[in-house]
Amino acid sequence: MADAVSICNLALSYLGDAANMVSIDEPEKSAQAELCSRLYPMTVSALLDMHDWSFATKRQAVPELTEEEGFGWRRVYQTPSDAIRIISVKDYNRQRLGSSEFRYVGDSFPDYDLPHADFEVKDKKLYTDVDNAVVEYISSNTDVSRFTPDFVDALAYLLAHKVVGARVKGKEGQTLAQMLLKQFYVSLSTAKTKDASQQKKRIHFVPSWIQAR
């Protein structure tokens, strides 16, 4: 099973590095550890943002910000604190149980796919016309143990591409950077294709006269 250190060592190995780090945090003081400690988190976030990864997708009801100006939208909601990117917004009917507690009809989300609503995200706020918004989003709090092997491979190549300038100088470094970037896109394509095959969208037809109710 991959972890942050093994992924960083894999990236370094693509540069011809010894790749023998045991930690990317203190107390290790190596130049490799310093680079990986700084670049690894942002590289993970960048790669997570490149696709609707099934293993990083979460679904959550979001709280309404009733005091916020909608600027043309009917509702304003707070986006989840761990959201890298909102994928979709849907409207689920809710029933109030108490002063602040809600449940969804059937105590769970429907097993069919509801129509996507229009939305806009600005400054961590979600603007939409949906009355009871539930969002699907890419989460930054995705444990490395959930990364697929193909995602790990793409991540290592992207990290190597970011690190190469500090480890390999001159024309050799430039040539290696181009090769790593090319290989990253190959790995990314493979990872996205395999990840997409893990998802099967259910089609739920809602007649227009019902949608208008």
Rank of each mutant, 00 (worst) to 15 (best):
V5I: 04
K171F: 05
R38T: 05
V186F: 11
K124A: 00
L39A: 04
G70Q: 04
T190D: 09
N93V: 15
L10V: 10
F109K: 09
L180P: 10
W209R: 15
D91T: 10
K171W: 13
D113F: 14
P207C: 05
P41L: 10
C36Q: 01
E101H: 15
A18P: 12
S140M: 02
A31R: 09
L39Y: 08
Y137D: 01
L155T: 08
F71P: 00
F151A: 02
Q174N: 07
S208P: 02
F102D: 02
T66S: 00
L180G: 03
L158T: 03
P115M: 08
R38G: 03
A56D: 00
N93T: 15
S208F: 05
G165K: 14
L155E: 03
A154E: 02
D3S: 04
Y92F: 02
N141D: 02
F205S: 13
Y127I: 04
K171M: 07
K58C: 05
C8F: 10
V62Q: 08
D25I: 09
E64S: 08
P41S: 01
R59E: 03
E136W: 06
A133S: 09
I210H: 08
K182H: 07
A177N: 06
L47W: 02
E28T: 15
M179N: 14
T148Q: 11
M21L: 12
V135I: 04
K124Y: 00
Q78R: 11
A212D: 11
Q199R: 15
A31S: 12
Q211E: 04
V206C: 06
V130L: 10
R103V: 11
L126K: 00
I84E: 04
M42A: 05
F147M: 14
F109E: 01
A177V: 04
D52R: 12
T190P: 08
Q78S: 07
S88D: 04
D153M: 15
Y157S: 11
G170M: 07
L180I: 00
S189V: 13
A117Q: 13
A11L: 05
F147T: 02
G16P: 01
A117D: 12
W53E: 01
E26F: 15
R202V: 09
D113H: 14
A160G: 06
P207W: 06
M21E: 06
Q32M: 09
A117M: 12
D123A: 03
S100F: 12
V163D: 01
F147N: 09
D129Q: 11
T190N: 11
V105E: 14
A56R: 01
V121S: 03
S30D: 01
E136F: 13
D113K: 14
E34Y: 06
V134S: 03
E34L: 10
L47K: 03
S189R: 15
D107I: 07
R75V: 00
P115N: 03
S6Q: 10
N20H: 10
F109W: 12
S145T: 13
D25F: 15
A156Q: 14
P115Q: 02
R167E: 07
R94S: 05
F55C: 07
N9P: 02
K171H: 12
F119D: 07
V5R: 09
N132I: 08
D107S: 10
K125M: 00
I84H: 09
A154L: 05
H51N: 02
I210A: 11
D118A: 12
G165N: 09
S81I: 00
L114T: 07
L181R: 12
